[in-house]
Design a protein around this nucleic acid. Structure first.
Lengths: 144, 144
DNA sequence: TTGGGTGCAAACTATTTGCATTCGA
DNA sequence: TCGAATGCAAATAGTTTGCACCCAA
């Protein structure tokens, strides 16, 4: 189940349904956070979600933001992206894709998986299975 | 300048020369840390380096370990690897390669770059240049 | 009522920083 | 000698945990 890109923000009722489909009890805070996340395809940090939640109506604590993002990621509603050594990003785009990371600005961009062809993945170690393959293209602004 | 794999540990004099070649003043602590790092191709965390340094003869503080690892990475002696959201790893293997990350054990394995062919990298954003491309294959042990 | 689920403050961990001291050239 | 490097401690930032509270069964 995947949240489509470039769609208008889901209504709260839609978010409640989405949470239920994923086996998550919809609480006020989770719905609020869902509303922030699924407004559009985006890359967010916990800090940003917290900031937006505080601008909104509901009370949400910092710990709840972290716990909820972790829960959503576990349940497959969002995808954790590890590119920055100091903070985690969460990606609401669940379509197969990779990332361009601007090391000087911290900006993260999506690259459709179809635009990168990987051939001959090496043999996996015995008794393991692939959980995911991340490709991160690190770019910086050219000095001029 | 690249440290070759599978070679016996560099003598301290060799490490001093290596640091000088990279424009790093060789101090007692830096040489000690270099000695730990370049004993063999490996993936280390700051914590592990600190632990090993304390087992050895020299006094090295935590802050110095962090600062030195950062310095070595800046100067291209080691490579920072971002796979784990909670800690950084440093890789003493500078040959072009990618990683297999065992999400359940935290183990990191090298994959020769030649074993992964990437085709048609997407167009880069205007005014940027590639700093590096990381491929991380996340694997887990299959349940049986 | 009651036991698991939830939310929050406080705790914790990895990392960085400021500054007095020491070291290397 | 003297600027650079170190060590310590405290600060910081991101994240996790312990526990009181709440709600459905």
């Amino acid at each position: 189940m995947e949240y489509p890109r470039n769609k208008p923000a889901k209504a709260r009722s839609g978010i409640i349904a989405l949470l239920r489909e994923h086996g998550i009890t919809p609480t006020q805070q989770r719905v609020e956070i869902g509303h922030i996340l699924f407004a559009r395809a985006q890359h967010v940090s916990a800090e940003l979600v917290l900031e937006r939640a505080r601008q909104g109506s509901s009370m949400v604590s910092k710990a709840t933001v972290y716990n909820t993002l972790g829960l959503f990621a576990d349940k497959g509603l969002i995808r954790e992206v590890i590119v920055d050594p100091i903070k985690r990003f969460y990606d609401t785009n669940l379509a197969p894709h990779h990332h361009i990371y601007h090391t000087d600005t911290g900006m993260l961009e999506d690259v459709d998986a179809a635009d990168i062809k990987m051939e001959c993945l090496p043999d996996l170690p015995q008794g393991t299975e692939v959980e995911g393959v991340d490709v991160i293209i690190r770019v910086r602004h050219t000095d001029r």
